[in-house]
């Protein structure tokens, strides 16, 4: 589904990623874990076209999307719920969701029933239904996170990139976010999840990659990584 080969990316002269390769098969939940500054967010930004990769190749459904602009990549079916949520603060919750379906509403992707999907999002995130007319900027952090995820899902994406959905949330909300991720996984949504909470991420994921200083330090089935002593020591807070 989503294939990343030898991706090199960074900001100006500062290289952050040094030739990393990741594969996200259809219907699977793949997670990318690593400490702060390892390059997790940069990886997602390079995939979705928010920054231009310097080298390497990214393909979506076999189509080369390397270096394409983010709006073109979105129209090909890749949704990215970015770090920091980035909801549109001066627009209502409903409008934010509708914008998630922008390519569908403007004929760039199959339209389907957008209105029904908005209702589905309200079923998935009941708090958003209560706040549907409210401006997104007035929502709490947790609600904004739900909105950012809902907005990305409104694309009916082939692949969903989730960047730190738990960041800055109270433990109870983190649990809620992960239960939603689990539901999306059950619905066979193809996902690439970036998380600081490595333990929780490996708990839900099928496969995991460990990123260290812009290089892959390991990879494997999630339940294997979970029990890998090196991974446990470095990321799961079970240092010996």
């Amino acid at each position: 589904m989503l294939e990343i080969k030898n991706l090199v990316a960074g900001y100006g002269k500062v290289k952050v990623l040094h030739a990393i390769s990741i594969s996200v098969p259809k219907g699977q939940l793949v997670t990318l874990i690593g400490s702060n500054g390892a390059g997790k967010t940069t990886t997602l930004r390079a995939i979705s076209g928010m920054i231009a990769p310097e080298a390497g190749e990214i393909t979506l459904n076999g189509e080369n999307i390397t270096g394409k602009s983010s709006h073109d990549i979105t129209r090909l079916g890749l949704a990215h719920s970015p770090e920091g949520r980035r909801v549109f603060g001066t627009l209502s919750v409903t409008d934010n969701l509708l914008l998630g379906a922008f390519p569908r509403l403007t004929g760039k992707r199959p339209k389907g029933d957008v209105e029904a999907d908005v209702q589905k999002m309200f079923d998935l995130f009941p708090r958003l239904r209560e706040r549907r007319e409210q401006l997104a900027g007035t929502l709490s952090g947790g609600e904004q996170q739900m909105l950012a995820m809902g907005r990305a899902l409104m694309l009916q994406p082939e692949v969903l990139l989730l960047d730190e959905p738990s960041m800055g949330l109270a433990p109870k909300l983190v649990e809620e976010v992960f239960s939603i991720i689990r539901r999306l996984k059950e619905a066979k949504t193809t996902m690439l999840l970036v998380e600081q909470f490595a333990a929780a991420a490996l708990e839900v994921a099928d496969f995991g990659y460990v990123l260290e200083n812009g290089k892959l330090a390991g990879s494997g089935p999630a339940d294997k990584l979970k029990n890998d002593p090196a991974v446990r020591a470095a990321y799961l807070g079970h240092g010996s």
Binding site: S69, F88, L99, P103
Partner: peptide, 12 residues
């Protein structure tokens, strides 16, 4: 509001 985020919505 946010040009980068708008790009992620498929907005040119």
């Amino acid at each position: 509001n946010d040009r980068d985020a708008a790009g992620l919505m498929g907005i040119n």
